[in-house]
Simulated scan of single mutants.
Amino acid sequence: MSAVSFQNVSKTFATARGELHALKGVSFDIEPGEFFGLLGPNGAGKTTLISILAGLSRASSGRVLVHGADVQADFAQARRCLGVVPQELVFDPFFNVREALRFQSGYFGIQRNDDWIDELLDGLGLTDKANANMRQLSGGMKRRVLVAQALVHKPPVIVLDEPTAGVDVELRQTLWAFVSRLNKQGSTVLLTTHYLEEAEALCNRIAMLKLGQVVALDKTSELLKQAVATQLCFKTDQALPPALAAQARVTGRVVRLPAQDAAAVERLLAQLREQGIAVEDIEIRKADLEDVFLDLMAGHPEASA
């Protein structure tokens, strides 16, 4: 039995301009114990799909199952199997951290849950904030509490919707260390993120969405094989000549150019010298998930139909 099964899921919204097809027949399964990534640009349908999974939105057609329980027909059972960390910072300003976690436990009928609560507080670096009112916490600390609330009933499936958006490096490391430990202990994790280096490092398998459709679904290692084998990377303050600019990926001063082999690297460097382009910090690196992602998003014109 799959941990999560999306079966031909479609979602249509009525707008002033007509129907908006947010999801178009999305189908894939997530197996128990997987660390699964769901990637896509803004507007791809990721949050809509997560909302349907969590029972916050109803699919126009198709089914979603969590450990065999339909999220609509058997909502209570499906919800007990899910721990969802939302994008938004939502909290009750009248309780301290420990009280908030105790109340969350009560929603699932769990009493005397303090041992697990203490473990969550320790694992997420919240022990010294246990008696602090939620209003007193920083944004990063509030996000840690959201993670703890999602895990307080020990769900077998953990859904992380942009969990590290706008948080510091320390929280990211703390969060991923704790979630990775739960994953190794058997928990299934579904992650949506715009930090593709996180997805590459953490996820065994990845689905990519574009305009409500799945445009890629494979093991992370297989997706990486689709990318150009190597790249020439360097920094420069000068504009590239048009021929190189057309194939370059530029982020500030950092330039990446595809280079299949050593001969290609030599040709690129020769072109730069001929054009008088001063470069620094030259390195040869392997293509990463971001390269695959950008290639896939640039393609698949049928997804916009």
Rank of each mutant, 00 (worst) to 15 (best):
L175Q: 09
L175C: 08
L175H: 06
A177R: 15
F178R: 08
F178L: 08
V179M: 06
V179Q: 06
S180Q: 13
R181S: 13
L182W: 09
L182H: 07
L182T: 06
K184N: 07
G186V: 07
G186Q: 09
G186L: 10
G186I: 04
S187I: 01
T188A: 03
T188Y: 03
T188I: 06
L191Q: 04
T192F: 02
T192I: 01
T192P: 00
T192D: 02
T192N: 12
T192C: 15
T193A: 04
T193C: 04
H194R: 07
L196M: 13
L196E: 03
E197R: 09
E197N: 11
E197W: 04
E198P: 03
E198Q: 10
A199M: 11
A201Q: 14
L202A: 03
C203T: 08
C203M: 08
C203S: 07
N204E: 14
N204M: 02
R205N: 04
R205W: 07
I206R: 09
A207L: 06
M208Q: 05
M208E: 04
L209T: 05
L209N: 09
K210G: 00
K210H: 13
L211G: 01
L211T: 12
L211V: 09
Q213F: 01
V214M: 08
V214C: 10
V214F: 05
V215F: 04
A216G: 09
A216Y: 10
L217S: 06
L217Y: 14
L217K: 04
D218Q: 13
T220F: 02
T220N: 04
S221N: 09
E222S: 12
L223T: 08
L223G: 05
L223C: 06
K225F: 00
Q226E: 14
Q226L: 15
A227R: 15
V228W: 02
A229Q: 13
Q231H: 14
Q231M: 06
C233E: 12
C233G: 01
C233W: 01
F234A: 05
K235I: 01
D237E: 15
D237S: 13
D237G: 01
Q238Y: 05
Q238H: 10
Q238C: 01
A239Q: 11
L240I: 09
L240S: 10
L240Y: 08
P241F: 06
P242K: 06
A243D: 15
A243R: 12
A243W: 02
L244M: 13
A245T: 01
A246R: 14
A246F: 07
A246L: 12
Q247H: 02
Q247W: 00
A248N: 05
A248T: 04
A248G: 02
R249K: 11
R249P: 00
T251M: 11
G252F: 07
R253D: 14
V254L: 15
V255Q: 03
V255A: 03
V255N: 04
L257E: 08
L257R: 07
P258S: 13
A259L: 03
A259R: 05
A259M: 08
D261F: 04
A263H: 11
A264E: 13
A264P: 00
V265T: 14
V265G: 00
E266F: 11
R267M: 11
L269D: 03
L269K: 13
A270G: 00
Q271W: 05
L272H: 08
L272V: 09
R273N: 14
R273S: 15
E274V: 11
Q275V: 06
G276I: 07
I277M: 12
I277K: 11
A278D: 12
E280F: 03
